[in-house]
Design a binder for these strands. Sequence first.
RNA 1: GGAGAGGUGGCCGAGUCGGCUGAAGGCAACCGCCUGCUAAGCGGUUGUACGGGUAAAACCGUACCGAGGGUUCGAAUCCCUCCCUCUCCGCCA
Length: 457
Amino acid sequence: MAGDTPDAGGGHTFPPSRVYTRYVPLKGDHGMLDLKFVRDNVAAVEEALRKRRSTLSLEGFVALDRERRERLVLVERMRAERNAASEEIGRLRREKKDATDLMERMKSLSSRLKGAEAELPAIEGKMEEFLLSIPNVPAPSVPEGAGEEDNPTVRTWGTPGTFSFPVKDHVDIGADLDILDFDRAAKIAGGRFCLSKGAGALLERALIGFMLDVHTREHGYLEVLPPFLANSASFLGTGQLPKFEEDLFRVAGTDYFLIPTAEVPVTNIVRDEILPVESLPLKMTAWTPCFRAEAGSYGKDTRGMIRQHQFNKVELVKICRPEQSAEELEKLTADAEEILKRLGLPYRVVTLCTGDLGFSAAKTYDIEVWIPSQGRYREISSCSTFTDFQARRAKIRFREGASGKTRLAHTLNGSGLAVGRTVVAILENFQREDGSVDVPEALRPYMGGMARIGKRC
RNA sequence: GGAGAGGUGGCCGAGUCGGCUGAAGGCAACCGCCUGCUAAGCGGUUGUACGGGUAAAACCGUACCGAGGGUUCGAAUCCCUCCCUCUCCGCCA
């Protein structure tokens, strides 16, 4: 790469783990995430944290903020004095007059100023770290609750089928049909990986094509194919960093992380940009593989392809005006649901309660598909609005036509859908007594007309 | 990997031997004027953040010319480090 200077090791130097591209505030020098909002709404933020069952406390932050402002006033007063004197010196010298007296005095002021300035970064660093760790404030319509069990069901579609024979799970179905091979995947990579073969691989590819086609041709999304690795600044923008590095795979010795969702590269397409208002809502869809470390989920869903280190997903991302975001979330969720309807898979939609809400989200609908072998619904899509949370971090703005003012956009995203889990749902819901699986009508054109997956001969 | 060029405001683009440059000039946008309509033309306005101030404004201050550091009374301008982009050569899907 041009401009790089080899170090002693002959390679590039990247930030060590946990050191990220510094948060760069909006054009400012020492701006904060939403300093004013937090300062002016301490009670509201604390209430939001309580609802989220978070242990974070604003205590200390308020004092830190006061201290910062006191010092800032001091520093800025000194700078003003210095600037005025410097201008005076310039004038004197242009008039060929002596300025050594003033210069001497400024020399001492300048060194005192340096001392005063030196105290600020530490305070601001602490405040910044804190602000980056505050989760988004839940939307007013989000029900309060402690966890998963408190998520209310919004609606249910379809009826779980009944089987006149003992149902098999997708692992057995896949093994019997020789289309899923977890043993060899483990040999190649390890646990939580899958190798699809024959109709299994075709099914996965068909689903990706089907989903993308519906979203681009019928729902008006622009298809994008982004990088599958992204840098730390991008992850900071969408909120996966700095708090959740342990969930990510990092490429050793680099600033690159494997994306855990297309949300990261796609939302960051417009990072640091001011968008023309008429381009909103911006709707994009992308297929990507997703990579997740799944640290802390040991023993959970170890069997099968429900929880993998790598899985395919078709993602929906929207960038819109604040006034549009509530409605756009409903539409986005409906767009994801449409896929399940066309595939004929029974599902329900739940609203995540405050205690179950993700870090960056203000409101989330989970779409859960029926899994016969488990006798319950499992998440297959998660549709969220982040309000201006990601936009603030990633500096995604738009210019209001009338006032000419820039405003933070709202960002949303949702799976449309998780492809691996869709494969699971299809295999299990459409299995037949003889071990074969019916291919949903909508998918057949994408599978060369194949109507049923049977044993290979 | 080797060699070179460059990163300035919404965009393009000047910045001389460091000082009066938040930053010329142009475009775009907005507000007036002019004009059968449109186009052209004329005049004016238009960055962001933080802090102070205000009922809210006005207003005042500070910072920001890729990022970080240094020199200096003073840096877009000088020095160092890093990042990124572009061009050519090499290698490669």
